[in-house]
Nucleic acid binder design. Sequence first.
RNA 1: GCCGAAGUGGCGGAAUUGGCAGACGCGCGGGAUUCAAAAUCCCGUCCCCGCAAGGGGGUGAGGGUUCGAUUCCCUCCUUCGGCACCA
Length: 853
Amino acid sequence: MRAQMQRQGLGYDWDREIATTDVAYYCWTQWIFLQLYNSWYDRTADAARPIAELVHKLENDVLLVDPEGEIASRSALPEAIGGVTPGLTKWHELTREQQRAVIDNQRLAYIDEVPVNWCPALGTVLANEEVTNEGRSERGNHPVYRRPLRQWMMRITKYADRLERDLALVEWPEPIKLMQRNWIGRSEGAEVDFEVAGAEDEVIRVYTTRPDTLFGATYMVLAPEHELVGLVTTDTQRSAVRAYVEQALHKTDLDRTADTKEKTGVFTGGYAINPVNGERIPIWIADYVLMGYGTGAIMAVPAHDTRDLEFARKFDLPIVEVVQPPVGVDWRGYVGDGVAVNSGEFNGLTTPEFKKRITEWLEAQGLGKGAVNYKLRDWLFSRQRYWGEPFPIVHDAATGDVYPLDASELPVELPAIADYRPQAGDDPEAPPAPPLGRATEWVNVRGYVTDGGSVITIKPASRGGPGQAAPGGVEVREFRRELNTMPQWAGSCWYYLRYLDNANDRKLVAPEIERYWMLPAKGDRRQAAGGGVDLYVGGAEHAVLHLLYARFWHKVLFDLGHVSTPEPFGRLVNQGYIQAYAYQDARGMYVPVDDVDERSEGKDAKYIRKSTGEELTRGLGKMGKSLKNAVAPDDICHQYGTDTLRAYEMYMGPLEASKPWSTRDIIGLHRFCQQVWRRFVAEDGSLKVTNEPPDEPLRRLLHKTIKRVTSDMENLRFNTAIAALIELNNALKADRPARQIAEPFVLLLSPIAPHLTEELWQRLRGDAWTHSVSAEAWPAYDEALTVEAEVEVPVQVNGKVRSRITLPADAAKDETQLHEAALADEKIARELAGKTVRKVVCIPGRMVNIVAS
RNA sequence: GCCGAAGUGGCGGAAUUGGCAGACGCGCGGGAUUCAAAAUCCCGUCCCCGCAAGGGGGUGAGGGUUCGAUUCCCUCCUUCGGCACCA
């Protein structure tokens, strides 16, 4: 890899080389994890803050705990009387366990039970894409179970709003921003409480983006996993409900959502009260409602929601119109804005007005409140594999309590073990046994808890010497290390920061170095307000996951003062894929490209397997081993040289576009490189360049070329930059080139073909040569020379070009002169004979269009 | 199903803000050079009619706006990418 990059003359600074798997690197990944673990999201500050601040505020009763265990601000509650706030609890009134739970519930890194695709036979959790439609593992075809497991999670959802908002600060392609916005999926609506009929103190909370359709809610649907399913289910329905829940739980997300458009569901037998009109509406469960979004329960408005309508039709539930669509549109299934009907006192309101009014009304009645929801979910951060960063976390062997290791304990190195594979089993209920569990000496440690709440381990006595002693007066306890490891994403979330200061063993990155590279330079108009990496080139497949995770971590580091910019990547470009033709035989097997012959062209082209004479079909796909269509860059370098390969790759098309590799086309760039050499160097090795000044047209062409290449390079349009250089080269063909052309030409070509131009530069400069062509100043151009002295202007009659007139550039810029010259043209005069000129449109310097009839 | 992007010669692609469609390269045809070939160089090459001059058509399809549309708007088709019943 390294040799390949060097062979291609890539300007990579090897002094900054990093590998995310090196201990010296992942030490800091673990350090960042500790930052996340030891932080919480302070709504008031709208930023992450050290968890110690939270504890301090709770201890001093600045913050209190609400009945749901959430943090509540005391000053925000006007009804606080004499220091006692109804419904809220003071810190010292909580037990130690409760306090721990409250804190853990705020940490940005936390453990939670989440449903995952558990494959006991592989001993690991699978991604949705690794599970087949039949609910089996893609690898090995083992059964996969959907089951809740204790997993490390990252509270990225706390940053949903900022991740969306700050997209305004970065210079990224609009489609990528849009994809992130859709992934974050902010929606505004309301949470509404529906009482359960017959159990008035229980409410089902729903989230809706259409509170204006509350009067049209004719039934409710709970997710099968919803906690109130048991409560609302009547005895007669219990077995049916249980069966449905059972079946839904065994389905993977794919099963639950893919292919089958048919809605399924079961009536629970229970009823809820619609808070706006007091009507009893049936409660159903259905797997089209997901526990992970909103509140896991919906009010169904079949008249104005497509899925609800489908469900209602299938199960024969009532459909009531509450939004009147424009005239001529059927109200059934109408989801747009309209005018309220059948909605009591709200009749006649437009949809946006209604939303505002009903939300206020719900809040006044204590039935609900406006709410913002996100599709974004917290980030599942554990893996049960060996190859990953160990968590800097230990569990108290006696109580199971979680403790972070002290920063002085870093790095936590991966222990050497004999067998890296996760432990397989066949019991779907058995707890996972990650491979790290085999390193028993590594897993079981002794240590003590510091005042700050972190754990410091004590080295046991060993062959090397006596064991460490704990400081006097501390209680030494047994701990077990966390067995999960971090995902691949962890290391790649912040590597751009480590490049800045890769050898620093005291800090992630030194602050002054970080500021030098990441903060926008003063007056740099191209640097976006968010700062960060000047240009980040990556594939579009990272549009949401990697780029959101990295932005999230960066923002946490920003909040905690470790980095100075709110965004990691100021400017982003998605490069396209290099595709290549892939050939398949009649059985669908791929045939290596070098065994294929192409006969004739276009639509009747035939692709023949050379070794067998068999006819093949051709497709286009990402270059790679599996399609047997890979081309090794080394081979191209050997055959044509590195400069040719570089030039070809840049010339193929725009950077952002995917384009097919075509070995056949390389020859063109090879010829260009050869021509350039021979343009300046004779057969005998002598220089062909003269010191005579070039003629006027050539000088103008040179300055035009410098201008084109300069702007193309800035905009990463390498393909058109090369085209401009080829044109200049073609114009030089006639005679011995002038030095005044040759030198800037070589400079312009140098980023594309550095090796060729380096040598040319040395020869051109001769004794005056001082340093590498890559260190020379970029050529400047004279704006006055970038325009032609004379211009040819097309003259159209009724939009069709009928003639061309040539006139001095100044005259072409003058509308009157243009006008006169056009009408004076012989061909135009002939064209206009017998017609009346209605209008003459003159575009200075560009064209003339005469409208006549 | 939803969201996004793209469709231009035989091929890859170019065309600034709505102003000469096809730059540049490949391929192909013809020629020069050569004993011959490779390599190299020159000329031609969007399609149709025409010996030519010239004429007509043409940027996925259909419509619209405009003096003028590859470019802007609407409808549809195809391809690629992302997401998966998101309330």
